[in-house]
Amino acid sequence: MKGVHNILVALALLALASSLASAYDPSPLQDFCVALDDIKNGVFVNGKFCKDPKRVTANDFFFSGLNIPGNTGNAVGSNVTTVNVDTLPGLNTLGVSIVRIDFAPYGGLNPPHIHPRGTEVLVVLEGTLLVGFVSSNQDNNRLFTKVLNKGDVFVFPIGMIHFQLNIGKTPAVAFAGLSGQNPGVITIANATFGSDPPINPDVLTKAFMLDKNVVQYLQSKF
C-alpha cells in the first residue's frame, strides 16, 4: 500500500510540474521526441536527437528504481536520485522531471543550491524537514522557511537558492517534481569553493568578508 501511495504522489507531482513547464521549456510539436545518443538518422530537437518514432517502445518512457533508498553515508547526509532526460529519454521536450531525496537522521542536508531551468514542487513522504528558499537581491534576500511533515508540500521558485534539512530523529524521504526535462543544479558551496580552476581567493575573501586563510581552507575541502 505504501508503494502505491508513493507512485500516486509521484504522478501528482509530475502533473503539477507539467502545468508549470510551459513557461520555461518549448512546447513540443509532436507526440514525443525520445532522446537518442546515436545521431545517425536522428533529428536534433531541444538539445537532444530524436529517435525514429517508429522505433520507439514503452521502455523509452519507463524508469525503475525510485523505490530504492539512496545512500546517505556521505559528508552532507543526503542522496538525490534524479530522473531527467538523461536517465529517461522519453522526457525529451516534455518539460518535466522528478527526483527522490533521501536524508540521514537528524542533520541530513540537501545543501543550498539552485535549479537554473526549473521550479521545484516538493512533498515529504517520511520524516520532518526544515526547508526554505531565499529571494533575489531585488526582494532584499528574504528567507521563506517552513517545517514540513509527512504529506506536506512546498514550492521553490525557479532560480532561487533553496535547501532541505532533516530535523527529525529518523530518516526522511521526499519526492520533487521539476518544471524542466533537465532543470540543472548548482550547489552553491561546490560552485563557489570548488570551481575548476579555483576562483582567485582575493575575490572570495572580499565577497564573503573572510580571512584569506579561511577561503583557501574551504577551497581545499572541495
Rank of each mutant, 00 (worst) to 15 (best):
S78F: 09
N84H: 03
G42E: 12
N6E: 06
F163Q: 09
F175Q: 05
A207T: 15
T82D: 00
K2G: 01
F63H: 14
S64D: 13
L165C: 12
A12W: 02
Y217F: 12
F154S: 09
G180L: 05
S220W: 08
V4E: 04
T187Y: 02
D211V: 08
V85G: 03
N74V: 14
N79S: 15
R100Q: 13
V121T: 11
S136K: 01
G127D: 09
V134G: 02
T87G: 03
T87H: 01
G168H: 04
A58P: 04
L210F: 13
T93D: 00
S195M: 01
G168Y: 05
G108S: 14
V123H: 05
I98C: 04
T82Y: 00
I186T: 04
V4Q: 02
H5N: 01
L218Y: 07
Q30A: 15
S195F: 05
D152L: 06
K2E: 05
P157G: 10
S97I: 07
V121W: 01
F154G: 08
C33V: 12
S220E: 12
A58C: 09
L143H: 01
L178G: 02
M160E: 04
P157Q: 10
L148W: 04
V203T: 12
G42R: 09
V80Y: 01
V56Y: 07
G90H: 03
G151C: 09
R142M: 06
F222V: 10
T145Q: 09
K221D: 04
N190P: 00
